[in-house]
Design a protein around this nucleic acid. Structure first.
Lengths: 146, 146, 146, 146
DNA sequence: TTTT
DNA sequence: TTTT
């Protein structure tokens, strides 16, 4: 039977997305995302940071490589996937990743502007009106908002 | 700026979906969904049921009308939408609905079989291979599970 | 059987929380929250805003009245509850609210500082170390972050 | 700043929970949970199962050890935590776990009855009135359902 | 290692 | 109006 495997994260990118192009014209983007939590221990405020390996495929990877950068605050929805691999010494290891299904940029509007290549905010805005900040691979049911 | 508007429900259908066909060949299905919660009051076990108005559009409505029936247990993901209308006496009223984005059938396998018209489990299975129980309007990135 | 009734929102407060004190020393805070969504219609970027009625009870209301203000960006988790009431003309009406179970402030750190009564950022920080921004009614399993 | 780190799973236990008692009278329960997903590949129905390491602490572990068993269908909410350890050969490894914050049993009512040691349904029910199936570590705001 |  |  089918189950549910859903992850919801809000955090900051630890690095710019690393983009790879696989055969068949498939794009993959990956980056670490930090989610922080604060709690009290012996009256002191402790911050604990959890790091997540985020992976985005195809169209989502393309848009991620365009908009997401180190330090940005982002909401990510996805699913868990654990895969095994061999490290350099031939030891079998496991890694758990969050395969993103959609993301939304949070934070100041200026964060939605792509400044990596020196385009001005204005140019970006005309190219990307109104701080478009929600991205997904959903079908383009674009005409009606439901 | 874009935000997040997400609802996650697991509950039972209170009625069979009501299906309407709008102009432009658009299908809409709607039904009430009950989510129950139990808590203790004065040592007695109380069950409180919340009713949700679920709305499904287009392809999701089509598949809902095929598989969902009164009493079935279902996981639904969607978003909130409040709209106004006038009742028969002309009074403005508001209703809040959950516009579903995908759903997954839970429960026994026999629940995934469409038994309304006496078709056998086998016939259902050939029509509906492997008790497919997760439905969404996501793009059919069907070849690879990520 | 028990079900799941969960709402996850990220949006901005439309107003300051309105706080009431009920008998039995129970605090209730309520405010509207806007979640915006952008989509394309005929090549134009449309923003559609959904308004949610948020309700917080007891300790969560107390902390909300202290930290949440009009315009702030907040993550809210809660559940749906529809209740009926009579309006002034005696007509029965329904309203659906999101009863919050916890919230987390998002956005710039300066947003976490309570500036309503002129306390300085520094004073706020000592009172509220490290921009504590996650609030819930969970038990204070504070010593260990799991 | 605080972030969000949330996991939502619906799946079946692969084994009975393994319960350990740590110093300080702390209980820990852990078990594997399977979430299955089906998709089409070349016209064939493929099922892919993802395994999650679930960990429950303290009171939640106690109730888990009482109600959860191999094969049961359960809704789990929690957060991701990756920790490192050394395997027998002294190699550093990482494992990602879902630290559960609450769970709800889904499925037939008979599944809520603890039949491992031959107690009757009736005895179970008196001990566990009304098939209580939602468990969490939330404060016992038991008198009012909000 | 679950379930269908 | 569901389910337990």
């Amino acid at each position: 039977m089918s189950g549910i495997n859903k992850v919801i994260l809000v955090g900051h990118l630890g690095k710019d997305p690393e983009v790879r192009h696989l055969e068949g014209n498939v794009t993959v983007a990956s980056f670490p995302l930090a989610t922080s939590e604060t709690y009290n221990k012996d009256g002191k405020r402790i911050e604990q940071t959890e790091w997540h390996n985020i992976v985005m495929w195809r169209g989502l990877a393309d848009v991620a490589s365009k908009y997401l950068q180190k330090g940005k605050l982002v909401y990510i929805e996805g699913k868990l996937r654990t895969r095994s691999f061999e490290d350099k010494e031939g030891h079998k290891k496991y890694t758990t990743e969050v395969v993103a299904e959609n993301f939304t940029m949070l934070g100041r509007k200026s964060d939605f502007e792509n400044g990596t290549n020196g385009t001005t905010a204005q140019a970006d805005k005309s190219d990307n009106p109104a701080a478009a900040s929600n991205f997904s691979l959903d079908p383009v049911d674009d005409d009606l908002p439901f």
